[in-house]
């Protein structure tokens, strides 16, 4: 099958982090993985060592429930025009196993696992507000 070519005039990306990808070109397969433990401790401003391991939390080891098997589909793509044209792309941030790709991509299998922990000081007199 003849492949299409992507044409983009301008791209602006402000920032990228944590297993993210900005790719120009064709890719066969991409498998980004990101594990993160985000610890916020009340009253601590600077970075510090926090004794936590990924193994401490089941969110990092749980297997996703398998998807139902897809019906067998014989797909045929007919490209009448060999170009995908985009004028301008502007992205502020790409993060956490995410991808911005200009070009063809055969297989993308991305996974991000994030555990949030908040460590608060002793409860204050007022009842806790909405904790979200």
């Amino acid at each position: 099958m003849l492949q299409r070519t992507s044409y983009v005039d301008t791209i602006y990306v402000d920032s990228m982090s944590r297993s993210s990808m900005f790719e120009i070109g064709d890719v066969n397969s991409l498998r980004p993985r990101m594990l993160a433990i985000a610890v916020q401790e009340e009253g601590i401003a600077e970075k510090g060592e926090v004794p936590v391991e990924f193994a401490d939390f089941p969110v990092f080891s749980k297997q996703p429930s398998p998807l139902p098997s897809a019906p067998l589909v014989r797909k045929t793509s007919i490209h009448h025009h060999p170009k995908i044209c985009v004028g301008n792309i502007s992205v502020l941030g790409i993060a956490a196993s995410s991808t911005l790709q200009i070009g063809n991509l055969n297989l993308l299998d991305a996974e991000a696992r994030i555990k949030h922990i908040r460590i608060l000081n002793e409860e204050q007199n007022s009842p806790p507000n909405n904790t979200m």
Partner: peptide, 23 residues
């Protein structure tokens, strides 16, 4: 923002599998 195993793709694709676990 493109975040937590998402994608912005300008092109053709065969197969996409994106998963995100949030606790």
């Amino acid at each position: 923002a493109v975040s937590s195993s998402s994608t912005l793709l300008v092109g053709d694709n065969e197969n996409i599998n994106l998963s995100s676990f949030f606790d």
